[in-house]
Structure formats: C-alpha cells, structure tokens
C-alpha cells in the first residue's frame, strides 16, 4: 500500500491506496472528484487530463503514488471564486462541447496549451496539432478549436490590460 499526500485544487489531501492505483482513480474514487473522466485504457483519448505541478498530464498514465508531494489541479479547481476561467467560458460561448464527456480533458489541455505557447500566440493549425492527444466524438473539433483560439486571444487582451 502507498500513502499519498498532495495539494488537490488548493486543499491538502491524503489517502492510503494500493500501489497500482492510478492517479485518476485516486482523484475520482478516493477524493470523490468525478469531473476527471476515463474514456480509454491506452492514454489516447485525453478525457483524464489534469495539471500536475503546472503541467498537463493524463491522469490514467500516472500512479497515485507518483503524485505524492505534488500540486494537482483538476477541472473542478479551475474556476476561481465562482468566476469561470476564460477557457471554460469560451467553451460555453462557442459551443465547444456537446455530451461533455471529453470536455474536462479538453479544457485542461487547452489551458496548458495556452500557457506553453503564450496567450494570443495560437493559430488554428497549431491548436489542431496540439489536440492530437484529445479525442472528441461529438463536435468534430471545429468549435473546440474556435473556443481555444478565442480564449487564447482574450487572455492576451487581459494580460495587456493588466500591464
């Protein structure tokens, strides 16, 4: 058994799990945060993307024990004080989701994508390339791409306004 302790969405949590327990199972079953989804067994679909120490990670490819001592953010931790993150707002505004099942991973991957490239620096082709690891069966991606681009541009505007 492994004792796991981490900061999850700003809160210190811990638990004792089997060594083989995946991080996604720890988050969903042990911590009861079901916003992170499991859509495949081979790390292809990306429904389980979360942030571990600021980096996008597929939570089905990491053991809970490997996340000991890290800081983890899931979709539930993205909105601050009731205000949606610009990426969340853009997904709603641009109809970037239908059934909602891939959405947690899409949004978490998009936030990471914007951070890595810098807000305002994403074009349509780059976004599509970056979404290689996230599968959606409902939307045909067109409105997801649009939402990510809009959020990226909006975040650039916000940054400029702040400077």
């Amino acid at each position: 058994m492994a004792h796991v302790s981490m900061v999850l969405n700003g809160k210190r949590v811990s638990g004792t799990v089997e060594d083989r327990t995946l991080l996604v199972a720890f988050i969903r079953e042990n911590q009861g945060l079901t916003g992170t989804h499991v859509g495949c067994d081979t790390s292809q679909c990306g429904a389980c993307v979360i942030h571990v120490d600021g980096k996008a990670v597929k939570a089905c490819t990491m053991l809970a024990a490997q996340a000991d001592g890290t800081e983890v953010v899931t979709l539930e931790g993205l909105a601050k004080g009731g205000t949606l993150h610009p990426v969340q707002a853009a997904f709603r505004e641009h109809h970037g989701l239908q059934c909602g099942f891939c959405t947690p991973g899409m949004i978490m991957a998009a936030v990471d994508m914007i951070e890595r490239h810098g807000a305002g620096n994403l074009d349509e082709a780059t976004i599509r390339h970056e979404l290689e690891g996230n599968i959606c069966r409902c939307t045909g991606y067109q409105n997801i791409v649009k939402a990510i681009k809009a959020a990226s541009d909006e975040m650039a505007g916000l940054q400029q306004a702040a400077e």
Binding site: G35, E76, L84, Q88, A89, F91, R92, L97, G100, F101
Partner: peptide, 19 residues
C-alpha cells in the same frame, strides 16, 4: 442561445453513470 446545461459540464459537475 448558449446552452443551459453547459455550466455543469465545464466545471466538472456533470453526473454520469460512473460518477
């Protein structure tokens, strides 16, 4: 109209069978 159901899906509050 933007979708009424979206808020729960974009904040991780959807309730699927496995949840």
């Amino acid at each position: 109209a933007v979708r009424k159901e979206d808020k729960r899906f974009i904040t991780g509050k959807g309730r699927y069978t496995d949840d």
